[in-house]
């Protein structure tokens, strides 16, 4: 625990940073103030650090305006909304398909041969669709956004 009973000749060092940032306890603040009142070195370091802090906060470390971020945010919103839309759509298609297949197999009055034939047509389409979807998913796997840590 740092206290104000430390000898005067000990420089306050990092407390100077804490001081200008307003992150010190009352006791530490007093120690800095008393010390800087008696130590020219720390006093001038304090004002140098203050100036440095001001200069950094006045600097411009990004040249992109807010319109750039608004645009990027809009792009992202569209992208995310679209992917949620697709998810809903595919979910609904799967459920409807399931109900349709059930009705076709168990409730249709068609003969077995016709059922198999029609089943082959739709089964083939489904396989094609799944293979395309699989390829897309593999491409998505390489998607850089996938594992952004939160």
């Amino acid at each position: 625990m740092l206290s104000n009973t430390k000898p005067m000749d000990e420089h306050v060092g990092e407390l100077l940073s804490g001081y200008i940032d307003g992150e010190l306890t009352q006791q530490q603040r007093q120690r800095v103030e008393i010390h800087c009142g008696n130590c020219g070195k720390c006093e001038s370091e304090l004002s140098a650090l203050r100036a440095l802090r001001r200069d950094v906060s006045n600097s411009r470390l990004s040249e992109y305006g807010e319109d750039v971020w608004r645009e990027k945010m809009d792009d992202t919103t569209v992208k995310v909304t679209r992917s949620i839309g697709w998810l809903l759509f595919l979910g609904a298609v799967l459920i409807c398909g399931g109900i349709g297949i059930y009705a076709f197999v168990f409730e249709s009055s068609m003969g077995t041969f016709e059922k198999l034939l029609i089943g082959a047509v739709y089964g083939g389409l489904a396989l094609l669709f799944i293979s395309v979807l699989r390829q897309r998913l593999i491409e998505r796997k390489a998607d850089k956004y996938k594992d952004v840590e939160i």
């Binding site: 750039v68 990027k72 945010m73 992202t76 992208k79 956004y145 952004v148 840590e149 939160i150």
Partner: peptide
């Protein structure tokens, strides 16, 4: 690099919008 940095922010936007509940 400012361009890579813009990509990083853009990616972060997307990560957050995908999981805002995080």
């Amino acid at each position: 690099n400012a361009d890579d940095a813009a990509d990083a922010v853009h990616d972060a936007f997307e990560a957050v919008l995908r999981r805002p509940q995080a």
